[in-house]
Nucleic acid binder design. Structure first.
Length: 575
RNA sequence: CGGGAUGUAGCGCAGUUUGGUAGCGCACCGUGUUCGGGUCGCGGGGGUCGCAAGUUCGAAUCUUGUCAUCCCGACCA
């Protein structure tokens, strides 16, 4: 490609509306342009990168036995009503009506469509297992799109769906995908950690995410997820799913009798702990949530934090938020109390489900709200002063230095960008949508499904997050838009121009993806642009051509050597 | 959904306080100059000042509304 004809415009300054480095660099280097909030044009350089990633994904998916197809971007509401997600998916599902007033939506994911395909096309166990995938745009009307391609509303995704006769088959399909994913990210030049995860709105049981870990010391690090991991045994999980052993905190408040005492204007656990001169771990914290419109009181030890996804899952919910003040007032009134926030407790509350984290069951002589403003109950014990809820499960957020459930070592935390995920769906969709096949025994059975996603555009952005310097992007060779750029320093110098042209043509003849910067710009401009755009190798033809030498530069290492044009070509061919 | 900020040429910004015919840098076009890390000069094109209503002789500037964008938050009792 000739730079003079390449459709790209590099900017001298970063765009003012970008926050994270991948967004800033992709805009400044002329890869993307925003069309609307969370919606981007992928310009020619970007399209090449995306195609590179897609090709790697295709090769590995095909090698893993999956078959590519393509499903519609606009989907009829009926399918979503069948699966039950039309009601539960929420505002992220972009709904629209066609000219006849029929409800439609833009596909945020394709479980419904693929299930409809399977139920029409797969009749017998003999056709199983099968794995179908597509690479396509998705649309999710995110609450707050941000970070450029990392959290757009429209984005490119590879989504695959496996169909098996039984759980054992699903386990195999799942493993095959996990292995394929590892190879895909490795080939993209990314280290992606496979971590346990919550299966979220898609449903199902087991799921893992592939996380590109980012440096937390980076001020604008784009990691939106916390990953807890054990460096000893390898356990790792997203914070929304991570578990840990109960730590041995003080759980006995030391009070020798139960008593309601004055705690004026002491609202927070921290203040209460200070006021009573007791550790936070002997206070039972009471939090009111709204899960799918229903009130839930969650009890957890004062030194710990509720993990909302876990709490929501305990009630199989789809939407969770902490209750508003007016809702709390309503609950209080309904139960005959008038307590302010900070003094709430489980005792005597009506019309509310109560759930306790495992951390509270061992509490003795503890402190808890008693639904009277400016008072707390101290020296409480379960079964005597307060009823221990029957629903006790793990709803706490893991913290750094908690102990690993597998090996007892200390857990650590890091930030990650989720570039892929794999789910065991089971029969969630096949049952809901009545998608069945006939098994060996002649019985109709629902498909056992799995689904597997990779954010193509997000992977590209994650690569920029991981591979850049103060001069610009440093693409891994495998996904770079071009492998090499040939830069004649001066377009006035005939020998330089002629040599550069020769190198360019020879590389082209070898089917190397190469750019020649044939613009009549000064050397500084061309070199800056080459760095910014991030082409992995640069062959600079300058004054040293008099001695028959060109400069060969590795963008990533900065290493330069002066060699002959033929040697430079050899080096490129040897990559 | 709440709070804050910002909308002026493709990009980055000034001008708004104190109303008086719209500016700078980059980019773009022409021209000369320079030529290994974003040369320098001269000349030029491009903007209904987000949109709408209002106040006024006169509005980028004041008022109201509205839309958009960015950031933060969305309650740990």
């Amino acid at each position: 490609m000739r730079m003079s004809g390449l459709f790209v415009q590099t900017l001298r300054e970063f765009p003012s509306d970008a926050e994270v480095i991948s967004h800033k660099l992709l805009v400044r280097a002329g890869y993307i342009r925003k069309l609307a909030n969370g919606i981007y044009n992928y310009l020619p350089l970007m399209q090449r990168v995306l195609k590179k990633i897609e090709d790697i994904v295709r090769e590995e998916m095909d090698a893993a036995g999956a078959q590519e197809l393509l499903m519609p971007f606009v989907q009829p509401a009926e399918l979503w009503q069948e699966s039950g997600r039309w009601e539960v998916y929420g505002k992220e599902l972009m709904r629209l009506k066609d000219r006849h007033g029929r409800d439609m939506c833009l596909g945020p994911t394709h479980e419904e469509v693929i299930t409809s395909i399977a139920r029409e096309g797969i009749r017998s166990y003999k056709q199983l297992p099968i794995n179908l995938y597509q690479i396509q745009s998705k649309f999710r009307d995110e609450i707050r799109p941000r970070f450029g391609l990392l959290r757009g509303r429209e984005f490119i995704m590879k989504d695959a769906y496996s169909f098996d006769v039984d759980e054992e088959g699903l386990d195999k399909s799942y493993k095959i995908m996990a292995d394929a994913y590892k190879r895909i990210f490795e080939r993209c030049g990314l280290e992606a950690k496979m971590v346990q995860s919550d299966s979220g709105a898609i449903g199902g049981s087991v799921s893992h995410e592939f996380m590109v870990l980012v440096n937390e010391s980076d001020e604008n690090n784009a990691g939106e997820n916390d990953v807890f991991y054990c460096s000893k045994c390898g356990y790792s999980a997203n914070s929304n799913h991570a578990v840990s052993l109960l730590n041995n905190a003080v759980t006995d408040g030391g009070y020798n009798k139960a008593d309601i005492i004055d705690t004026p204007a002491v609202h927070s656990i921290e203040e209460l702990s200070e006021f009573l001169k007791i550790p936070a771990s002997v206070i039972c914290k009471s939090l009111i949530y709204v899960i799918d419109g229903k009130y839930v009181l969650a009890l957890i030890r004062g030194d710990r934090t509720v993990e909302e996804t876990k709490l929501m899952n305990a009630f199989s919910g789809n939407e969770i938020r902490i209750a508003r003040n007016d809702e709390i007032d309503e609950i209080m009134q309904a139960s005959g109390f008038n307590a302010a926030i900070g003094f709430i407790g489980p005792k005597g509350l009506k019309n509310i489900e109560i759930i306790a984290d495992e951390t509270v069951k061992d509490l003795k002589n503890f402190v808890i709200g008693c639904n009277q403003t400016d008072k707390h109950l101290v020296g409480a014990n379960w079964g005597i002063d307060v009823e221990l809820p029957s629903l006790i499960t793990d709803i706490r957020l893991v913290e750094e230095k908690d102990k690993c459930v597998d090996c007892g070592s200390e857990l650590k935390v890091t930030k990650g960008i989720e570039v892929g995920n794999i789910f065991k769906l089971g029969t969630k969709y096949s049952k809901a949508m009545n998608a069945t096949f006939t098994d060996k025994d002649g019985q109709e059975k629902p498909f056992i499904m799995g689904c597997y996603g990779i954010g193509i555009s997000r992977t590209a952005a994650a690569a920029v997050e991981r591979h850049h310097d103060e001069h610009g992007i440093i693409w891994p060779l495998s996904i770079a838009p071009y492998r090499v750029i040939v830069v004649p320093v001066s377009d006035q110098d005939e020998v330089q121009m002629k040599t550069a042209e020769e190198i360019y043509k020879k590389l082209l003849a070898h089917k190397i993806e190469v750019i020649i910067d044939d613009r009549s710009e000064r050397a500084g401009v061309k070199l800056k642009d080459a760095d910014l755009i991030g082409i992995p190798y640069r062959i600079t033809v300058g004054k040293t051509i008099k001695e028959g030498l060109v400069e060969f530069k590795n963008r990533a290492t900065g290493e330069t050597t002066n060699i002959t044009p033929d040697e430079a070509i050899e080096k490129i061919l040897a990559l």
